[in-house]
Amino acid sequence: MARKPSDYQSDIWNDWCPGCGDFGIVAAMYRAFSELDLPPEKTVIVSGIGCSGKTPHFVKVNGVHTLHGRAIPFATGIKLANPELTVIVNGGDGDLLGIGVGHFVALGRRNIDLTIILHNNTVYGLTKGQASPTLRRGLRPKALPKPNIQDAVNPVSLALASGFTFVARGYSMMTEHLKELIKEAIQHKGAALIDVLQPCVTYDNIHTVEYYKKRVYKLEDTGWNPKVEKIEEKEEKIVKAWMKSQEYDDKIPIGVFYQDPHTPSFEERIKERIPSYLETPPARQKIEREGKTIIDSEAFRKIFSYYIVETE
């Protein structure tokens, strides 16, 4: 019996501001999880800190609400210790691209099979609307005392430059579309980013529902093919995707920008070195026998013979 979207709804009262785009994201997650029929006990949502950081409490799968900026490394440990888990990261733009941006880049380099859902609301929601790293220079959402004098980072471009092998953008108020992106990202074997445009109704009076309604269009409607069909195509595709990612003013493309199924995931790279890795990953190994270590004196001498000198 397949699980319904509502089976993933937790009983916790959701305290996001009424109308917040985060509701659209969590709604898309319920639907995507249901369509993929993810077993809750084998699914983990890892989040950072911020309004977005509360996401795991609203979903009935394992939830790990971590530290500001650190969701990716927590998720890295969870996924690598038990690769059979489906691990999804929800983080704010401040969280993932400000304080935690080093981890974001590192994830691209590793291509771990994680899905990153970036709640891109151009502000620091939970600390009262300061500029986030995705807010463009010169803009002044209402909480800012002065216009922003720092330039914005483009999440899609950065993900491409970092090595993410699935890079997409969604819009929180187009839930069906976003749901499809989430499904694809989860099914993709490697690091996946979904940059989700998420109106913050309380602090961002610029990037409103109206604003996005006028600008957003779907890449797939233009015949865009994000997929690296053959590895030789990688360079060309990544350049095209990067150029596309620069389009961000009058028209904002959403959809999958880039997908490379060829670059091995980190899990596959580990398996190259430790062939038993996927069958017996760290979390599933037995390390004791009736309270005793599995390495007894004899095994110890054999394993560490390099350090042992037989005396004269």
Binding site: N14, P18, F23, V26, A27, Y30, S172, M173, T175, L178
Partner: peptide
């Protein structure tokens, strides 16, 4: 389309 509505009387999202 937007994935959710909000009941103001109950202060709860509707999915």
């Amino acid at each position: 389309e937007s994935g959710f509505l909000y009941c103001v009387e109950c202060s709860r999202p509707i999915f």
